[in-house]
Design a protein around this nucleic acid. Structure first.
Length: 272
DNA sequence: AAGTTGACCTGAGGGC
DNA sequence: TGCCCTCAGGTCAACT
């Protein structure tokens, strides 16, 4: 579900509530996430204070110094601040309960259980974090980098962009939206994208992600920000999920094509 | 090495 | 109304 903008939306909503909060306890309702929640995690977290909250790719990092909590929302996860007394549902794997009154908690919901809750002493060297590519919204992310990494590669540019080890945080929606803005077909070999097109593509990625964050992310089905509200970027999508609908730029019907196990969307006229 | 496919798991929506 | 099928925002591991 959540790509970079949805995770960033979640982070911004949570920050005022969690930074500085003292942890009373971690209550685990269902350990079965992508990796089982470690049974000693409640012990590790008890009475710690959350000193900061940051994001790396689609991972949320709660600094409980020493050490950090890594949270990934998978395909269907979301995080909300609730009164701890509010009864959890069967889709809620855990509550991070805060000290103080009224008793508040950070509750995860994840019906598909592709999410994760992990603890690490040092996020920078954690095997999930260390190999990640650059953050597209940080300075220094440029077309020259994309062009260098793509050289000689035959996989589809869509799949290249979705590889977090190349660029952090881009999933199926924003890969397609950025490729539309840059005029490049999703299935073109990455190594066949010119330097000039890579410049355009890098700009398009920044534009799309920035606009999506401003809109509170994209809700297709079940994404909710930490305040429970959906994201509105779905109204601004140019190609994703718009099979047969007229291109916003030239009116040609948007085409859908299955590549790999996932759908691809593009305008056959605007994208080459 | 790079590319491709399967696996994980549940819910929603469409067709009949 | 209900059953069956397909599809979904991620990404690691195991193949070719």
């Amino acid at each position: 579900m959540p790509e970079l903008p949805e995770v960033e939306t979640t982070l911004r909503g949570l920050k005022p509530w969690v930074v500085g909060a003292r942890i009373k306890e971690l209550v685990v309702y269902d350990r079965r996430l992508r990796w089982p929640i470690a049974s000693d995690l409640p012990e590790i977290l008890a009475k710690k204070t959350i000193r900061g909250l940051s994001r790396r790719a689609k991972y949320l990092l709660f600094d409980v110094g020493p050490g950090s909590l890594i949270v990934h929302l998978g395909m269907s996860g979301s995080l909300r601040i609730l009164e701890a007394a509010c009864a959890p549902s069967r889709w809620d794997p855990f509550d991070l309960v805060f000290a103080g009154s009224p008793g508040l908690c950070l509750r995860m919901r994840d019906p598909r259980r592709f999410g994760a809750l992990l603890y690490t002493e040092d996020p920078a060297t954690h095997p999930l974090i260390a190999p990640l590519g650059p953050e597209p919204l940080e300075p220094g992310f440029e077309g020259s980098y994309l062009h260098a990494r793509a050289r000689g590669r035959t996989l589809a540019i869509r799949d290249f962009l979705m590889n977090g080890h190349i660029v952090a945080g881009i999933g199926n929606i924003y890969a397609h939206e950025a490729l539309f803005l840059a005029g490049i077909r999703p299935q073109r070999a990455a190594g066949r994208v010119s330097r000039a097109e890579c410049d355009h593509l890098a700009d398009a990625i920044v534009t799309v992600l920035t606009q999506a964050i401003a809109a509170g992310g994209t809700t297709l089905k079940d994404f909710r920000g930490s305040d429970g509200r959906p994201g509105y970027f779905s109204q601004e999508l140019n190609v994703y999920g718009r099979t047969g609908a007229p291109c916003h730029r030239c009116q040609t019907p948007i085409r859908r094509r299955v590549s790999g196990a996932r759908s691809s969307y593009y305008c056959p006229s605007c994208q080459r």
